[in-house]
Design a protein around this nucleic acid. Sequence first.
DNA 1: TATGAATGAGGCTTCATTCAT
DNA 2: AATGAATGAAGCCTCATTCAT
Lengths: 193, 193, 193, 193
Amino acid sequence: MDAKSIPGSRRELTKTQTRDTILEAARLVFAQLGFAGTTVRDIIRATPLASGTFYNYFKSKEQVYQALRDEDALVLRPRLRQARATATTAEEFLSASFRAFFWFEVEKNETGNERVRLDSPEVLNGFAELRQDIEKAMATGLLPKSDAGLLAAALSGVAFELAEEVKRGAEVEKVTAFATALALGGIGALPKG
Amino acid sequence: MDAKSIPGSRRELTKTQTRDTILEAARLVFAQLGFAGTTVRDIIRATPLASGTFYNYFKSKEQVYQALRDEDALVLRPRLRQARATATTAEEFLSASFRAFFWFEVEKNETGNERVRLDSPEVLNGFAELRQDIEKAMATGLLPKSDAGLLAAALSGVAFELAEEVKRGAEVEKVTAFATALALGGIGALPKG
Amino acid sequence: MDAKSIPGSRRELTKTQTRDTILEAARLVFAQLGFAGTTVRDIIRATPLASGTFYNYFKSKEQVYQALRDEDALVLRPRLRQARATATTAEEFLSASFRAFFWFEVEKNETGNERVRLDSPEVLNGFAELRQDIEKAMATGLLPKSDAGLLAAALSGVAFELAEEVKRGAEVEKVTAFATALALGGIGALPKG
Amino acid sequence: MDAKSIPGSRRELTKTQTRDTILEAARLVFAQLGFAGTTVRDIIRATPLASGTFYNYFKSKEQVYQALRDEDALVLRPRLRQARATATTAEEFLSASFRAFFWFEVEKNETGNERVRLDSPEVLNGFAELRQDIEKAMATGLLPKSDAGLLAAALSGVAFELAEEVKRGAEVEKVTAFATALALGGIGALPKG
DNA sequence: TATGAATGAGGCTTCATTCAT
DNA sequence: AATGAATGAAGCCTCATTCAT
């Protein structure tokens, strides 16, 4: 059925390199086009590879996306947990979190023009972890008691939006200081949960 | 052929009705499928109309989307500006803004499972307006001076994320109080911009 | 996503005509390539239509195939049942069956080079019907008693293979006479079932 | 590199073994999926070998198929010719043919759900041989004279369809007796060719 | 010889869009 | 103004096949 292909060059990359090539391209394209807006073809086109090669590595765009999120989670989540676990003051707890997140976003360098927040497992987990850490911090007295769910949401929001500013060029340390001050002051003023 | 055109009957408004039918369907579908995930076909299918009819009213899915955002802006932005323009205290400024936003989100009742933030003109405008209003408020002393850009971003983030909680069923007044307290306390603690 | 098509001419056929065009092409192609060997594209290519048009009428090649079998069944099965129901002698029973089948095959004019016998519902039904009619005929004494299942299979085999001879140009009446004589003589010699 | 090539060991026959591995897998897969439904990949997957290896032995699926038919022909055709050549009565001629064919089908154990009759050289040859043998038998008076072409076709049909019954579990001897009686009785009743 | 990553043709299907009615 | 059949580009994916190792 498929009798006449004239294959070109070959085997210039190791298997891992090829996989990374695809992942890298995918990260770029997802950032630009958003998850739903991205097609597998878009990813392939951002690559020197042939279309079939994609499917030697991933079954679908969902799967690449997940791989990307897994990579991220592997990097970011330990940093965040570490930052919060070693914090001895509220200020430290918050600033370390914000700082880790902003640096991470800078490193990823996704200058996407669309902001998608698929409630992917990764995001959800990160969110749940934040909430847990907040509850723990409230229990140990590191943070004053209040509604942990709303606080987690609000801090996420601050982090997400300020991350955009950072990506647009704002200085990480300055934004971290800003976010920390805002959050710290705000938390102090919250109704006791 | 014109057998059912009864002169003087009320069915001369069909044109606007048809347009509204499409918009209504589109809002529903965008909410469910997200912007990129929605196709024109999806919108038509959510309608009793034929595919050709869609193109008598809109050139593309982008255009319907814009029309929807325009509708929203027509409703929300005046409310927000009004709320902020008449505020005489920082507390009022913030609580009125949050309250208006949360109510609006509740009314729209878009329980979308995707959260896309196209940096559409509408969003950008809303953002710019917030920033302007904040600057104005800082100028008049309603709010203490600090980095208006970062503050606008941070407050947007708080609003977006807490809106999700509201959509999930949290009480508007409670969340408004939470957001206001957080923001108010935070702003007081900010480094002078 | 699909922004720039330059459509060609249109609406030269009624909906039914288009459907028939596809069915006709499909019958031809199935005959030549066999069921499994046929692709939807093959069918489309045998048509002046565009690829998308196929899917306005059928969901898959399986569905066209079924439609074709339905058409056939609508024609052939009543003829066969009728022929056998009105038979008053074994000779009539057999000759009417063979004759109906051979004429039908000639009419279909499928000069296929592959002979596929998908055990499609249609074939299975035809087979089951033959068996039932044989059992009925044995019960009424029209045919002598023997193993109805084996007999049905054997007669089917004779019919299928001789049909090929007919398609290759053998005279229907001559082949019918041959088949009838063979079957009649054979049945008389069968061990009592 | 040649670490595991033990001189004098029995693993020098690997080449034939590999070929047989492929053929065995192919027979299985063709039986399950039918000829057109089978892909080279399917065959490879039914094997512990790598895809490239397939092409060291066969150029295409058609070629493996042919090799399989050749194997069959090598086994079946001599048996059939032998059976018919030594027959001294019509009954023997027929029963030996049917019996050989049914046993062969049982041995192959291809419980295929598709029945394809590619008019492959092998099938055509087998058919031509049957016809020749029938003509010879008519010439020697073993069989009464009639249309040898039609008779060969009819007997083939009986054999093919009853073979299905055998594959479904019918007893070879019983079906052979049935087929023989039917054919014998039928032939006696045929118009003189 | 065997391997299996890479290739790209080609099959399947859906989509946006047109235009005769 | 509304319809919906037709269109063909383009997305998705699998396949046969090659060839560096």
